[in-house]
Each structure stands twice: as structure tokens, then as C-alpha cells.
């Protein structure tokens, strides 16, 4: 499964991904100028959070054991067997917001104006996610989950090694 990876050091918190996610995925007009005139206003499926020192675009992680899937009362949230992504069937969503409470990352958002839960579907029906395309710093990248897991494992090892070098005698268990 491919997921959206973030190069943290490249994200400057410009929120371009947020704006164009809303324009491309939420609006009928598909341009910025038309989108801001729509009612209800389109909403983004990605949110940039953080501080001036560190910002981070949050979107659905498509967890392998997704709590939202169990929480959904109507089956509106399901896993697409082909892409393995967690998607919302808007016609089944009753806007109970249970999923928004169960999501461990807080990346499912209520959209009361349209009475549907809003979440990233990684632009499954497009060539590639909009946020990747528009990021001026190329902070977002589409990567294989296994690749990401491996990268995280490597990074953990590096950090463990760094800590061990500085704190002699300290043993950190490598749980990777």
C-alpha cells in the first residue's frame, strides 16, 4: 500500500496543501477563485499543524487496524479491497461523528454543513494526491508503506546509537 510520507525538514507550514486540497477535492469550480464563492465552503482533507519551528501536514494514515472502521455505525467507512485505503461512502454517512472520536490521529473531520465525515482518501481516483503536486517544497511524497516502515526502523536505530554514544552504559532495547 502506498501512503503519503512527509519530509518534516521541508515543511514550512505554508498550508498550500490545505488550500488546494479543498479546491480540488471539495469544490465544484475547481479553481481557487470559484471555490471561495461556494456555499458551503469546500473543506480540506489535510490539516497543517504545529508551530513556527515545526509544522506537519496531517492526513488519514489508513491504519492497518483502523479504529474508525469499527466505530462507524452504518458502514460508511470501509476499506477498499483494491487499494487497501480507508474510504468514506458519503451516501451512507449519517454525520454521527463517532469516527472522529475514535480516530487516534484526529484526522477525520466533521463537516456539519454537508453532514458527512471528511477524511483523506489519498486522492485514490486520481493519478496522485493533489497535496503532493502542489507542495512548493516537495515535502510530501508517495511511498510504499514497507519503505516507510523500513525508513522508520533505520531512523530508530540511528537515534538509539546516538543516545548510546552520549550516555555511556545506557542500554536501549531495540524494539524495531
Amino acid at each position: 500500500m502506498k501512503v503519503i510520507g512527509v519530509h518534516l525538514e521541508r515543511c514550512v507550514g505554508c498550508k498550500t496543501c490545505e488550500i488546494y486540497c479543498a479546491v480540488e477535492r471539495g469544490s465544484n469550480g475547481k479553481t481557487l477563485w470559484k471555490a471561495v464563492q461556494e456555499d458551503p465552503l469546500p473543506q480540506a482533507r489535510v490539516r497543517v499543524e504545529g508551530t513556527n519551528n515545526l509544522s506537519f501536514p496531517w492526513q488519514c494514515r489508513h491504519c492497518l487496524k483502523a479504529p474508525c472502521l469499527d466505530a462507524c455505525l452504518t458502514g460508511a467507512l470501509s476499506r477498499d479491497p483494491k487499494s487497501n485505503l480507508v474510504i468514506v461512502k458519503e451516501d451512507k454517512c449519517i454525520a454521527c461523528w463517532t469516527c472522529t472520536m475514535f480516530c487516534p490521529y484526529g484526522v477525520i473531520y466533521p463537516w456539519p454543513e454537508r453532514k458527512v465525515a471528511l477524511k483523506c482518501d489519498r486522492c485514490a481516483f486520481m493519478e496522485k494526491p493533489v497535496c503532493l503536486d502542489v507542495c512548493p517544497c516537495q515535502a510530501l511524497e508517495l511511498v510504499e508503506l514497507e519503505e516507510l516502515v523500513e525508513a522508520s526502523r533505520q531512523r530508530r536505530k540511528e537515534i538509539i546509537q546516538q543516545i548510546s554514544e552520549h550516555k555511556k552504559g545506557l542500554i536501549i532495547l531495540d524494539l524495531a
Binding site: E18, A35, V36, L41
Partner: peptide, 9 residues
């Protein structure tokens, strides 16, 4: 400062 055009921010 910037204002969110879509009203959430």
C-alpha cells in the same frame, strides 16, 4: 497573519 479562506482555520 493569514486567514483561512475556507473558514476552518
Amino acid at each position: 497573519c493569514r486567514i483561512d479562506p475556507f473558514g476552518r482555520g
